[in-house]
């Protein structure tokens, strides 16, 4: 793949994306239109995130890709391979080691720091899209800060179900101005979005980039009497015992038996390693 430019995209395309990223950071939560390019992977498979990563990566970066929290899911593998080949960057599975993390559907459990960048793959960037399918209308709503429709939807949920029936892609308000789609992360992850790292969001098919500078105030929409709740399965991880991480439910037999394990594979592996180290140390102590 050496025939391609550094990080695949040509320089003019990267400049166009970089300008969009800067405007996105200057107007947190606002969706900046950009002339998304056709990438060598399909729309809907992370082309927005890939374009943002391509415009962001430097040769010195250490790159991590997760899908559903896991480094070894096929599409994460495919995207990681793409940048190994086109940008020659080092890759890692450890959250703490990575400088740029591209993600689909999760925020890592380990807190991110100021020197890290989190790039989200976004399928539908418009939080109002399922309430109003027209771009011409939703654009007007954002410009007028007219978010009544969203509150009505959440309120109707409560009236019908006794709770807000949105479990992922739970809408947030950014710095008290723009309502933003956090991408389809579980709402468990929403409170993490006020963080020291830069967050960049890329929606390739929908041609939008948006961003959150570090420490930007991100608030999940709710009502005083129905406050937002970052929920997860009421279990702990079968493998590492964590009770504070987001869990996947794994069906283990034909009788519907199931276990719960961390969705963040790097977090889980690090905890397991630490535990076996501690056990080994203890064993050594006892034997000594």
């Amino acid at each position: 793949m050496t025939d391609y430019n550094f990080a695949y995209l040509d320089e003019q395309t990267k400049r166009m994306i970089r300008r969009a990223i800067l405007k996105g950071l200057a107007i947190p939560g606002y969706q900046v239109p950009f002339a998304s390019r056709e990438m060598p992977m399909p729309y809907g498979w992370g082309t927005g995130g890939v374009q943002v990563s391509a415009a962001t990566l430097t040769p010195e970066d250490v790159f991590k890709v997760i899908d559903q929290g896991a480094d070894d899911t096929t599409n994460a593998v495919s995207i990681r391979k793409f940048f190994q080949a086109t940008a020659g960057v080092d890759t890692t599975e450890e959250t703490e080691e990575a400088t740029v993390i591209q993600t689909r559907h999760r925020i890592p459990e380990a807190p991110l720091n100021e020197d890290q960048i989190l790039v989200y793959q976004v399928p539908i960037p418009e939080p109002l899209r399922f309430l109003e399918p027209r771009e011409t209308e939703t654009r007007k709503m954002h410009s007028l800060e007219e978010y009544g429709l969203m509150h009505v939807k959440l309120y109707e949920d409560i009236a019908r179900h006794g709770a807000i029936a949105t479990a992922y892609a739970y809408p947030v308000k950014v710095e008290g101005r723009y309502v933003m789609d956090p991408s389809p992360i579980p709402k468990f992850d929403n409170p993490k979005m006020t963080m020291p790292a830069i967050q960049l969001f890329g929606a390739g098919r929908e041609q939008r980039i948006y961003a959150l500078p570090p420490y930007t105030k991100v608030v999940s929409l709710d009502f005083e009497d129905y406050p937002f709740e970052a929920s997860k399965a009421d279990h702990s991880c079968e493998l590492c015992g964590a009770d504070d991480s987001y869990l996947d439910e794994v069906i283990v037999d034909d009788q519907g038996g199931r276990i719960f394990v961390c969705s963040d594979t790097a977090y889980c592996a690090a905890r397991q390693a630490a535990q076996s180290d501690a056990a080994a140390a203890q064993y050594e102590e006892i034997s000594a």
Binding site: A7, E11, K14, T56, L57, T58, P59, E60
Partner: peptide, 10 residues
Amino acid sequence: VPTEAARQFR
């Protein structure tokens, strides 16, 4: 250009 622009953009 490609690598220097990337570093400076960061």
